[in-house]
Design a protein around this nucleic acid. Structure first.
Length: 152
DNA sequence: GCCAACGTTGGC
DNA sequence: GCCAACGTTGGC
């Protein structure tokens, strides 16, 4: 079982969107980056846990924990011409993009801000704080996971 | 809105 | 396969 961090822009999809879903479970749609796709498709397993991270907003940071309840399968939005995630290059036979289903485990009582994460010397090696990092899905080590839990 | 960093595209 | 141009991400 592994740990992850998954980014979402709260204006597009916030943790409160997920909280309002049936069974607090939803698809993690719209990832259109190959590296992140590979992790969704190949590496995430049922039972893995992930930090839900809000990006591109006033206070970027971790807002909760989710768990993977369905492993990688083709992201339906790539086939939908009406969707902003539509990809004409993709076919049902050979889908390009994948998604997983996530279920809310808990919302943080308060934000674990990017600023706080950057200030913690134990988290210096996190991919999240590395220069130029733009991956929307990334692995988190067990040590980093525990450190962040301790900051909650 | 700015800009650095990175990813993708496409001509050659 | 190279690389310039362009697009996107995301913090500030």
């Amino acid at each position: 079982m592994r740990y992850w961090l998954m980014k979402s822009e709260p204006e597009t999809y916030s943790i409160d969107h997920l909280a309002k879903c049936k069974k607090q479970t939803d698809r993690w749609e719209g990832v259109r980056n190959y590296q992140a796709r590979n992790m969704l498709r190949d590496d995430m397993e049922i039972g893995d846990q992930a930090f839900f991270y809000h990006s591109s907003c006033a206070e970027p940071g971790i807002v909760g924990i989710v768990k993977i309840v369905r492993a990688g399968y083709p992201d339906a939005t790539q086939f939908d011409p009406e969707s902003k995630y539509y990809d004409p290059k993709s076919t049902q036979e050979k889908p390009i993009w994948y998604t997983v289903d996530v279920q809310l485990v808990k919302k943080c009582n308060s934000l674990i801000s990017l600023t706080a994460i950057k200030q913690n010397p134990l988290l210096e090696t996190m991919q999240l704080v590395k220069r130029g990092n733009r991956l929307s899905v990334m692995p988190v080590s067990p040590a980093e996971w525990q450190t962040i839990l301790g900051m909650a």
